[in-house]
Amino acid sequence: MTMITRSALFRWLDEMAEELPLIAPSYVEGILLYRQVSKSSEVAMARERPVLSPKEVFFPSTEVLFTINKNGDKLRLNETLPVKEQVVFGVKACDARGLSSLDAMFIDTAPADPYYAAQRKLTTVIGMKCKEMGETCFCTELGLSPDDPSGVDISLAEFEEGFDVQVMTQKGLDLLNRYLQDGADFYIDRSPLSGCTDATQPTRVVLPEAKTFPLLFEDAMWDEVAERCLSCRICAYACPTCRCFDIRDEELPASAGERRFERIRCWDSCTRNAYRRTAGGHDPRAGKGERLRNRIYCKYYYFPRRYGQLSCTGCGRCIDLCPVNIDITEILRRIVEVRQFP
């Protein structure tokens, strides 16, 4: 395998951080998050996945779509598309799969979302293979594997001696060539690549057949499993594939005689109260059970039917973070059970 030394990697990270935004897992007051770093020492080479997924790099929690300038009866709109080249480092297989799931909806289905598409084009993604699975991880149950290199531009795997480098795309090769010297930085190791050595059993997940979902739409189980739900937004915000957003105009400071606004879009979550409430007051998902049902159905039934991929990568963040232990794998098992023993 082609490997680079540890020092070569850190030098590479330092050089990148000097020239363009480098976003990598980093500890912020003890919480592991993707953050822009200014040097390699700020990058956390952690086994765990960051609390939030890297989707926020491409689909920010708040994004300006355009600005509005009002001067008397003159109105001008200025589109604010992403323009900066950047690199994201340390992306795990589950999060890379999340990006490809978002790609299927944002880009591959017309019309392409120009903001997300621009950010994807401008960003090179460096992945890091997992050596072990977390307690709540279940990517393997969804046909993924922790050392799957697909979905990133360069896939790294950490070893004692250094990092195995697997170039996946031309974009990745271009980035590599920009910063690393053949010979000086690379070496070939003759030992075979050992993948994920983890022996932990992931949570067993049986994906219900598609035909099960319509049959269980009216089932009483939804109100029951959602009873303890707090209707917060943690699961949707932490999820690498959730992408619901809200849009609104908000005022900016302006000089005299002028008014300025920005049209922003922000993360939203179908689990929250009033998510679907119209101005007229109609609220088709007033109940928590209806909202939780929609979340599950969207991930495992609606999204795959429309875009050909699950809207779940088995990363396990929702299970980790839910304050009341609403466990998506438990719900899937329950669906299969209810179907078998109605």
Partner: peptide, 12 residues
């Protein structure tokens, strides 16, 4: 700064 307005604090 790192709050994500998930409102879990408020909801709980």
């Amino acid at each position: 700064d790192r709050c994500i307005r998930c409102y879990a604090c408020r909801q709980v």
